[in-house]
Simulated assay, not measured.
Amino acid sequence: MIVAGIGSKRGVSTEDVLAAVDAALARADLGRGALGAIATPAVKGGEPGIAAAAAALRLPLVLVPQTQLEAAAERAQTRSERVIALLRVPSAAETAALAAAGREARLLGPRLALGPVTCALATGGEA
């Protein structure tokens, strides 16, 4: 199963989230059917654009608690000083995807940034 981890600025639109997911999938040569879940840090749970994107894709939205983000931090591939200041992890998208995909999860590549959204794909575990 592949999990798409999402990081974003506040007020992100559904269209922005879907565009980032599609771009990350295209980079990995995958289609939407490969996805099993959308994951985001729990603090982003109130973002309607992220929730609406998960609903549009007919996927569960996994809200990853801070402790799980931090546990996945050492496996992240990219580093954002802004995200470190806000969430104390190097990448919201990467750590959310890794945490939701399971302990043995691995990233399919570094996060992709597209406008106000970042998306990372992880595989290798359960959501």
Results as ranks from 00 to 15, higher is better:
Glu94Lys: 12
Ala55Phe: 08
Ala120Asp: 07
Arg58Ala: 09
Arg79Trp: 13
Thr78Phe: 14
Leu25Asp: 04
Thr67Lys: 10
Glu81Ser: 13
Gly33Ile: 05
Ala72Tyr: 05
Glu104Lys: 12
Pro48Asn: 08
Ala51Arg: 07
Pro90Ala: 15
Ala23Gln: 13
Val17Phe: 04
Gln66Ile: 11
Ala92Cys: 11
Gly46Cys: 10
Ala127Tyr: 13
Thr78Trp: 15
Val12Asp: 02
Arg103Thr: 15
Arg58Leu: 06
Ile50Tyr: 01
Ile2Arg: 00
Leu108Arg: 05
Ile84Thr: 15
Ala99Thr: 02
Ala76Thr: 02
Ala26Thr: 09
Arg58Gln: 12
Glu74His: 12
Gly125Phe: 12
Thr14Cys: 11
Leu98Ala: 05
Ala19Phe: 10
Leu57Glu: 00
Ala19Ile: 05
Asp22Trp: 03
Ser13Gly: 14
Asp29Phe: 13
Leu114Tyr: 07
Arg27Leu: 04
Ala19Arg: 03
Arg75Cys: 08
Arg32Met: 10
Ile84Tyr: 15
Gln77Asn: 03
Gly109Tyr: 13
Ala122Asn: 11
Val21Lys: 01
Glu47Arg: 10
Ala42Thr: 07
Ala52Tyr: 05
Pro60Trp: 09
Gly46Tyr: 06
Lys9Arg: 07
Gly31His: 02
Pro65Met: 03
Ile2Ser: 02
Thr14Asn: 07
Ala53Leu: 05
Thr118Leu: 07
Leu107Glu: 01
Glu74Arg: 04
Leu112Thr: 03
Gly49His: 00
Val89Cys: 08
Ile38His: 04
Leu112Lys: 01
Val83Pro: 00
Pro41Tyr: 09
Val17Leu: 03
Ala105Val: 03
Leu107Thr: 08
Thr95Leu: 04
Ala19Leu: 11
Glu126Val: 10
Gly102Leu: 09
Gly115Met: 07
Glu126Ala: 08
Arg32Ser: 08
Arg103Leu: 15
Ala53Gln: 02
Arg32Phe: 11
Leu35Val: 12
Arg27Pro: 10
Leu108Cys: 02
Ala127Thr: 15
Ala54Asp: 00
Gly115Val: 08
Ala113Cys: 05
Pro116Arg: 07
Ile84Gln: 15
Ser13Glu: 12
Ser8Ile: 07
Ala56Phe: 14
Asp29Val: 08
Ala71Cys: 12
Val64Pro: 02
Gly33Arg: 09
Glu94Pro: 01
Ala92Gly: 11
Leu69Gln: 06
Glu126Pro: 06
Cys119Ala: 12
Ala71Ile: 13
Leu25Tyr: 06
Pro110Trp: 11
Leu69Lys: 04
Ala120Glu: 04
Thr118Ile: 11
Ala19Met: 09
Ala85Ile: 13
Val83Thr: 14
Ala24Met: 12
Gly125Cys: 12
Ser80Thr: 06
Gln66Ala: 10
Ala113Val: 06
Gly46Met: 06
Ala96Cys: 07
Asp29Glu: 10
Met1Gly: 05
Ala101Phe: 01
Arg106Lys: 10
Val62Gln: 00
Gln77Ile: 14
Gly45Leu: 13
Leu63Thr: 12
Thr40Lys: 02
Leu63His: 08
Arg10Thr: 03
Leu61Asp: 00
Glu126Asn: 11
Leu57Asp: 00
Ala24Arg: 02
Ala34Asp: 04
Val62Asp: 03
Ala39Val: 03
Glu15Val: 08
Ser80Glu: 04
Ala51Cys: 09
Val89Lys: 01
Gln68Tyr: 10
Gly102Met: 13
